[in-house]
């Protein structure tokens, strides 16, 4: 089996937004749709004892996604490899899945044809991987800092498996029982 996950190394992320733009450009997203924002609380602390940290986000491709069973039309679905995606042909855009997601990682654009809006979300670049099974998602490919690492968790030799097995990783909002599959290596440092 294959289980795609992403490891995000916050020790390396510098908040350049390259992933956000690469995703938007190559997935041809409307302006108001951002699959993978890089959020930050900004500089924290009291000058000059400060620190800062960035959290690159994307769909968590949960093991128990909230957004799939609630879909009335069968558009929101999950592949065997864990990829959660929306079939635009089937989507009513009732936005129940958008409201179901605890991470706010889905939305329908307000800048498109009023009669043809559908719910969009990160698909780990499913279309790209269908053309080329070894392809990496755009956000991973474009990251200068190699802060995003994508791979198969079921393969013990993959980089993600090794990282998750060797470094302490965090996940966001595990309390919903969604089993998110994006693993964060936190930046504990701050200023030396």
């Amino acid at each position: 089996m294959t289980r795609y996950v992403m490891v995000i190394d916050q020790r390396r992320c510098i908040g350049c937004h390259s992933c956000t733009v690469a995703c938007r450009v190559w997935n041809k997203l409307p302006l108001d749709i951002i699959y993978n924002p890089v959020v930050s609380e900004g500089v924290q602390g009291t000058w000059p004892n400060v620190h800062r940290n960035w959290t690159p986000l994307l769909c968590m491709h949960c093991e128990n996604p909230e957004c799939v069973p609630c879909c009335p039309s069968g558009a929101s679905q999950q592949d065997d490899d864990g990829t959660v995606w929306v079939d635009p042909k089937k989507c009513l855009s009732c936005k129940v899945c958008v409201n179901a997601c605890p991470y706010g990682m889905r939305d329908a654009s307000h800048m498109e044809n009023r009669m043809h809006r559908f719910v969009r979300k990160c698909t780990f670049c499913r279309d790209k991987r269908q053309l080329d099974p070894d392809a990496q998602p755009y956000c991973v490919e474009t990251c200068h800092q190699k802060a995003r690492i994508f791979g198969d968790l079921d393969d013990p030799n993959s980089e993600v498996s090794k990282l998750i097995g060797s470094v302490k990783t965090d996940r966001i909002f595990t309390e919903f029982g969604t089993e998110p599959q994006i693993y964060y290596i936190p930046c504990l440092g701050g200023q030396a």
Binding site: C16, T142, C143
Partner: peptide, 14 residues
């Protein structure tokens, strides 16, 4: 750049 491209580089076609 080891395959990396920033916001600006990625937008070259635009």
């Amino acid at each position: 750049n080891k395959g990396g491209l920033c916001c600006r580089g990625t937008s070259a076609l635009l």
